[in-house]
Amino acid sequence: MRPLRIAVCVKPVPDPKESNRLQIDPATKTLVRKGIPLVINPLDRHALEAGIKLKEEAEGKVTVFSMAPPAAEQTLTETLAMGADEAVLLSDLRFAGGDTLATARVLAAGLKKMGEWDLIICGAESFDGGTAQVGPQLAVLLGIPWLTRVCQLKREDDNHLLVTVEDETEQRDLLAQLPLLITVDSAVNQPRRLSLLGILAARKRKVITFTADDLPVDLAGIGLNGSPTQTRDLFTHESTKKVELLTGSPQQVAIQLLDKLGLTEKGAGQ
């Protein structure tokens, strides 16, 4: 089968294992991430694995893209150690504060700058933002079709993938034509662990960095000022729900439950 040119979009996020240390800055309404190590967004690891697997099946090339501060270079080096062929860091102070659309615009510019793509893979959503918007927005900007929440993926022939997508109600098997953008779910694969040989191989590969000046972007559409979304408020949700444990024999518990649900005479009277 013909080799594919695959782009994978990756976001560095605060380590989910340390998410209890995340705080909200009450003044700027942004997440305070200081001191928390950055890791590859968990679903983006699945995206990268999907790209590398396709490459291993039929040659090709996997290029990782990330719009992030310069510190993300370490995260991108990790993607090279996992098996990506090259990594492109889109980094500029002018990108800061961008919403999902502004981010997608920068990513689209980076992708265009580096060439043409058969397949673009994103994680379905980010661990910290969780909007699930960047993937589809990027597809629209590039003028290609997209499928979200892919949970199974196979190369069918030169120009088609066989994918399974899942939403709240159903699973569908689809034959999808390339070029295409997909966002993947965690069920799609088991990402590989880092290996020392991978780390060594990454020595020969470089992280390429582009600023806004290197990219075909309209400065009016990027960063905080170019973002249509404005955050009004950001707060920690205080749950007021209470857990009540029913105790007793299974019969007693069942009757208590029926009472609570209003399905017994006593309950109906409540």
Partner: peptide
Amino acid sequence: TAEQELLKKA
């Protein structure tokens, strides 16, 4: 180094 950090992670 970045490489040593990756190694620790691995």
